[in-house]
Design a protein around this nucleic acid. Structure first.
Length: 911
DNA sequence: ACCGCCGGGTGCC
DNA sequence: ACCGCCGGGTGCC
């Protein structure tokens, strides 16, 4: 039966139907349409005419829509199904395979060999046949098409999301015009019967795994791989792969020293990592899973085979420059990467090959083969830059900056912060720097728009820090990351596998390690065998990770010493009882506050009065530290009445805001982090300026907290000098507090035990730090202080003084929360006092880590001062709750957040 | 001559 | 392309 005849035959049927339809319409149009609709067949005449031949399958009108995406070859098909679920490939099983022909070979250059895996790509927009299915080889070079009279049966099922298809060439064929291809059909358990019926009705001969001759006929390596994706049960074991990997890991024996522009010396394990990173970038080895073969006997020509797909080429594949740095947190990955950037500068020639020092390969295979997934990468002819792009979360950006400041000579590396609204639009600015730092959010915002300077530059190196962020390959952020052009690619993450090996698949997409950067190939060669327990999956994954990943844990030992032998860290709570006078004031304000909050809760106006509540909480916390911090001695009510109508009094708003800022521990309800620039609305809610402006721009102009109409003119920012309290006056104050006395007692006790011990005192109230100074002086402590109001120079000077080993030097450092930046190195101290509990436990942890980090030689004791029977105890309880919920905080709805906020308030006020 | 047969032109989707 | 199919040329033995 030949295609042409069949085509004609059905065209006639179609025309007959069409004529019939016209007559029927004249008679009883409405009836017919109704009937057609109940039968699930489109009654649109245009649709029928257009389809012509495809009517044979009588498929219901396909209402799903498709959009072309850049990431074409990353998925199984050329379109992104915008109606479908993200995890469409989950839980699909092999139905069987059918043998079809690939035709039109004479028009294309892509070659394939016996038992080679091919890509099957739907071409819904093909002008000759809407059911077209293209066949590509591993490099994305087109081989041909599946013959149309078979494709027309498969394509509708594919488009309906009922099946996934994969292709393998069963036997070698030198044929210039057509060759056989086995198409494997996978479907969900629930759709299995539908699929079987529709396929058999189509007349496709399906060989199922139950058939006697399945094993004889199949070209698939291992027939027991029936399931497409990961089994949840087995997912757990995947976590152990890295552990196994560590055991089998070829020991990194070489170590290299960092270049002189690095001020600091590296730990042995960091030198090893540096040697490994440099080796991975400069190696001439074939990429993983490639083997060299002599091409035919007698010939000197070499050919290269990919053992995953059996793809063969006579051009040497380029070395794979990059990989995964998966060291556990706290091993100094950032510093190691800085060393890499400083050490392994670009080769002199952008086309590789001349620099003898690095022994670059002489092959000059074009950077990109005819892989059609990313046209822009070939289109722009920009020269390869020497710049390294680092993409990281905003919070990690400050780590990079502080590490650069701490470890490199000033000016030795040119760094550009690609962040903020005034960031450059010129790619030439970016490419002329050594390091460009940006965030995932910026990258996502610019996407793969070719106008983005990030996408224009041909980077020497792209580093994704905290690369597990791209674990969902369908997210815009991930796609933008995948489309960056770079010679060397690094994924850096301490937690490379959280949801199983799937996460690694996303990293492969970024790393562009062919063919594993293709979701389908990744599933076929690693994911599925792994989940069915087939040894090949495990062995391949292991081989892959051994070749391109480095992971060490803190527990690993080198020369019988732990890699990072951090001293012990203990956290103790020191309870404090308020003085009688302070207790009276506290109880009075708490009682008033309780009554007020009770009213708000009862009337459902908690969120409308949020700032009042914050203020009450703030006052209570201040009294716990020192009653002088709290300006209200007479009670709350008078101030409360003042802030009833804030909209008419911006001055008052500003005042309130600055008060709020002095206790900077409530998070912006939009981004859930402490605001960088806080603004307050006329309805008295506090947000990051950026967050609320963005929200007002996108959504209706309403306050996200109370839904009051709101525009940007209703936002008020705190003046930068808001915290101009009279420091000298504070310091002179003689009155002490229970907490202050307790702190002094602990400091003195420690000094007696060991006068060389240095201490860090954290408080979030700058005023409290002031109050500590007088007693410190009196007791003969030398101290320094760092707070938000100090210039960078002053801070550095204070830090240097504290770090000095001079026996005469300061032994106490006073730090405000805002000043305890991520990079701050306080290992000189080993005692830590947290004067007041932080609202957010993560920030507290971060502060502790300034002391308990690489370089610390003593055991670290952290003492948290907590007033008994007070709001501070409840804050601790909330911390515990937040810690448990930390990971689930994302993806919470606005309503959820509202609810939990109200709950928090109720808990804090014991209502 | 509304067939059969011949042989040249031709060839994916 | 050593096939199939198409369509024009052709036509007893």
């Amino acid at each position: 039966m030949a295609g042409g005849r069949r085509r004609r035959k059905f065209a006639i049927v179609s025309e007959t139907e069409d004529r019939l339809l016209q007559e029927q319409i004249k008679v009883a149009a409405a009836m017919l349409i109704a009937a057609a609709e109940t039968a699930g067949i489109s009654a649109s005449r245009n649709d029928r005419q257009e389809r012509g031949s495809t009517l044979i399958s009588a498929r219901p009108d396909n209402s799903r829509t498709f959009s072309l995406t850049e990431g074409a070859s990353q998925g199984d098909f050329v379109y992104e199904d915008v109606n479908g679920d993200e995890d469409d490939d989950d839980e699909k099983y092999l139905v069987g395979f059918t043998e079809v022909n690939i035709v039109g070979l004479q028009y294309y250059h892509g070659t394939v060999n016996s038992r080679e895996m091919v890509r099957l790509i739907r071409e819904p927009h093909n002008v000759y046949d809407r059911n077209a299915i293209r066949v590509d080889n591993m490099y994305g070079e087109q081989v041909g098409h599946i013959e149309r009279y078979k494709a027309c049966h498969l394509a509708p099922l594919v488009d309906d999301g009922l099946i996934l298809i994969e292709g393998i060439i069963p036997r070698g064929s030198k044929n210039a015009f057509r060759m056989p291809c086995q198409v494997y059909v996978f479907s969900k358990d629930t759709a299995m019967n539908t699929v079987r019926n529709r396929l058999s009705r189509s007349g496709l001969a399906l060989v199922t795994p139950n058939d006697r001759n399945f094993e004889q006929l199949t070209a698939m390596g291992i027939p027991e791989r029936l399931k497409l994706t990961e089994d949840k049960e087995r997912g757990k074991n995947i976590d152990e792969i890295f552990d196994t990997l560590i055991l089998n890991q070829k020991k990194v024996t070489t170590a290299i020293d960092p270049p002189p522009l690095l001020k600091t010396s590296l730990y042995p394990h960091q030198k090893e990592a540096l040697a490994w990173l440099v080796e991975r970038e400069n190696s001439l080895e074939l990429p993983p899973f490639w083997q060299e073969q002599a091409e035919k006997r007698g010939s000197t020509k070499k050919s290269y085979v990919n053992s995953l797909t059996n793809f063969m080429t006579d051009q040497r594949p380029e070395p794979f420059r990059g990989g995964i740095l998966a060291d556990e947190m706290g091993l100094g990955k950032t510093l190691t990467l800085l060393s890499l950037i400083a050490t392994n500068k670009p080769f002199k020639s952008p086309s590789f090959g001349n620099d003898k020092d690095f022994g670059q390969p002489t092959s000059s295979r074009p950077l990109k083969r005819a892989k059609c997934d990313n046209p822009e990468s070939q289109a722009t002819g920009e020269r390869r830059s020497g710049a390294t792009l680092v993409v990281c979360p905003l919070s990690v950006m400050s780590i990079w900056i502080s590490q650069l400041e701490e470890h490199t000579l000033p000016g030795s590396l040119k760094v550009y912060l690609y962040h903020g609204t005034d960031r450059t639009k010129k790619s030439s600015v970016l490419s002329s720097h050594d390091i460009v730092l940006t965030t995932y959010n910026i990258l996502a915002a610019e996407g793969y728009d070719s106008r983005s300077p990030l996408q224009k530059v041909n980077w020497l190196r792209v580093i994704l820090d905290e690369a597990h962020i791209v674990k969902n390959p369908n997210a815009g952020m991930s796609k933008a990351a995948f489309s960056l052009k770079a010679e060397r690619r690094w994924a850096v993450t301490g937690t490379p596998i959280q949801n199983g090996a799937k996460d690694l698949g996303s990293l492969m997409m970024f790393l562009k390690l062919q063919p594993l950067d293709d979701k389908s190939f990744w599933n076929r060669t690693i994911q599925r065998p792994l989940s069915t327990g087939d040894a090949s999956g495990f062995l391949r994954l292991q081989a892959l990770l051994m070749a391109i990943a480095l992971r060490r844990t803190k527990d690993m030992e080198v020369d019988n010493k732990r890699l990072v032998d951090l001293p012990r860290r203990t956290v103790n709570i020191h309870f404090v009882e308020l003085d009688v006078k302070d207790r009276q004031l506290y109880d009075k304000i708490e009682l008033e506050g309780k009554r007020l909050v009770g009213q708000y809760v009862a009337s459902g106006t908690v969120l409308q009065n949020y700032s009042t509540i914050l203020q009450i909480i703030l006052r209570l916390r201040q009294i716990c530290d020192h009653s002088d911090l709290c300006p209200l001695k007479e009670g709350l009510l008078d101030t409360i009445s003042d802030i009833k109508d804030l909209s008419s009094s911006p001055e008052l708003l500003q005042k309130l805001l600055s008060v709020l800022q002095s206790g900077d521990d409530f998070d912006c309800p939009i981004c859930l982090s402490p605001p960088a620039i806080a603004v307050i609305t006329k309805c008295s809610h506090v947000f990051c300026r950026k967050c609320i402006e963005k929200t007002l721009m996108q959504d209706k102009e309403k306050c996200p907290m109370c839904r009051v109409p709101l525009t940007t003119s209703d936002l008020f920012a705190a003046s930068p000098t808001a915290e101009a309290t009279d420091v000298e006056a504070d310091i002179q104050k003689q009155v002490s507090s229970a907490k202050l006395k307790a702190l002094m007692g602990l400091l003195l006790e420690t000094r007696i035990k060991d006068p060389s011990i240095k201490s860090v005192v954290f408080s979030q109230f700058a005023g409290m730090l002031n109050l500590i100074q007088a007693p410190l002086k009196e007791a003969g402590f030398k101290y320094v202080r760092i707070d938000g109001s100090m210039s960078l120079k002053k801070r550095e000077a204070a830090l240097r003084a504290f770090q000095s080993k001079d026996t005469d030097g300061p032994t106490v450092i006073l730090l405000s929360l805002k000043a305890a930046g991520v990079g701050l190195n306080l290992v000189a101290a080993s005692q830590v006092y947290m004067i007041d509990p932080w609202w957010n436990p993560a920030i507290e942890e971060q502060a502790m880590d300034r002391v308990h980090r690489l370089g610390q030689t003593r055991d670290v004791e952290i003492v948290r001062l907590v007033v008994q029977d007070s709001i501070e105890e409840r804050i601790l309880e909330l911390q515990e709750k937040k810690r448990n919920l930390a990971s689930s905080a994302f993806g919470k709805s606005v309503d959820d957040m509202r609810r939990s906020r109200i709950e928090d308030v109720q808990h804090l006020m014991r209502i």
